[in-house]
Design a protein around this nucleic acid. Sequence first.
RNA 1: GCCAACAUAGCUCAGAUGGUAGAGCAGGCGUUUCGUAAACGUCAGGUCAGGAGUUCGAUCCUCCUUGUUGGCUCCA
Length: 595
Amino acid sequence: MAVKHNTEYENSHLYRVRHSAAHVMAEAVLELFPQGKVAIGPAIADGFYYDFDLPRALTPEDLEVIEQNMKKIIKAGHPFEKKVISAAEAKKIFADQPFKLELIEGLELGGTDEDGNPVDEKPEISLYRQNTFVDLCRGPHVATTSEINPDAVKLLNVSGAYWRGDEKRPMLQRIYGTAWEKAEELQEYLWKQEEARKRDHRKLGKELDLFSINDEVGQGLILWHPKGAKIRMLIERFWINEHEKNGYDFVYTPHIGKSQLWETSGHLGFYNENMYAPIDIEGTKYYIKPMNCPFHLYIYKSNIRSYRDLPIRYAENGTVYRYERSGVLHGLTRVRGFTQDDAHHFCRPDQMPDEIDFVVEFSINMLKAFGFRDFQAYLSTKPEKSVGDPAQWLAAEQALEESLKRHNLPYEIDQGGGAFYGPKIDFKVNDAIGREWQLTTVQFDFNEPERFDISFIGEDGQPQRPYMIHRALLGSLERFFGVLIEHYGGAFPAWLAPIQAELIPIADRHIDYANKVARELRLEGLRVHVDVRSDRMNAKIRDAQNEKIPYMLIIGDKEMESNAVSLRKRSGEDLGAIPVVDFIALARSEVDSKV
RNA sequence: GCCAACAUAGCUCAGAUGGUAGAGCAGGCGUUUCGUAAACGUCAGGUCAGGAGUUCGAUCCUCCUUGUUGGCUCCA
């Protein structure tokens, strides 16, 4: 698996610090386990890791000891010394380190580096030594361990990792750590982790009563509670409106299809390991759908299409089921049953560039509506093994790339990273605390039009093959919901909040008036709830605040007299008493502007 | 699926070298009717994830199963 490289980061001092910290950690681990075998230990996005084969499982207490050892080594200021040697020498030095021997052999052959990326020229073999630890390593490192700030290094956790990421190879223990230039940066990183924990959609999902996953129902299957379902409905409603405005036709398709369908589509061949076992119906096998496209293709095929009909855009929030290994399931973001906001475009080759532009723009507008401002695009091109005419591939790749350029989107190219059936663009969004999430995907398909033999009648009266594009903008409603929860930290903007206003009568004598106001607000299309409990106002405010309800309307004697409500926003802002009509105007404008 | 850790009331968590468990919040019932982040009292809630073993006795020890968490791998 090819790993993308970020050269700017790799040339930074921080990268060297982290890589060096990994070596120091390895030394500290070997101090504890002299017989331990070391694998690889690179710098990664926020820190570093090192993989070990050790006689026993590490405990959190071990991590503390290792961390203390590291600090001792760091403070001693050992220099990192590089030495270039021959493969034979290297093999002698690492005679009792089987993983290193394997790496050396790889280097000898000029095959792959430690990430598994192919290496063109035969690289030189170098060692780096600090104090007692010698590692086979390309470098670079800092000059001495004292360049690592002992107050800005922290070991985070231990986990299992396969040697070279291959599940058929031994399982090693991986220790993750983080390292920064300054202690404050470490604190900030840890704060951000803490913030991420607070925003965790699984935690908020429970606290805000949005969704649950039940053992008896099944892993990776989502139960949408009323409030979560309300938000989903609002998302879908908006989505449908936008699609309607943009020339999509809506379709609905079944959840299962005969095995023949999946033979034709090719899924039984190339997607089999993600599909569930078939159901036998009167001797015929049916499969639960892992994708919606074959059904959409048959809708296309149900009639003769003229070049004048194109482009055709079929949209469906289609629920699919895919087998995922139990260990990878995660809240809403990795599940076994999910609803894709799917669509398939069929267009003439000459329409293709415009169609791409259209999808790119539409995607961005959709994501922006949900408060995402920063995007990263990834363009994946033709892999070695692929179907379809290379000229078509090239045209599609160029159209994709040109569209990204036209829209001023920062993008990276993943050479050869496309599916075998076509190139694609993925969009990742950055959420409120800067994390990346993959949502949108736009994929060309040169495979299925062929397999289903779809066509349109051209100007010349001859059948031609249309281009087909799969796209999901939000990705799946489940994942998107999870990302949204984390993006907003559960404080949904008014247009998405399941309850927009909590009415808080101060005493029981205010309940009738509160109900009257509530009816008025509901007639205006606002989602409101009256807190009729006998708690004190303060308690009601606190609860509404914890529920992250955008508006709290306090109702007491003063408000009753003047047909008003006292508005408190969840930000804590107290706007005092305002006429009910003023609140309606304010709420509506905030809902409409989606803030 | 694999490695590791974890699983106690609706939620968040305590607990004992093995003698069948508690708190806060939530919930029920009373009392209170209050002006911008928690009124007071009272009651009810648990086969300590499920199963097997060791033991006079298991929620605690051992094994298995299921699930969760962090990773590996994969991806909407």
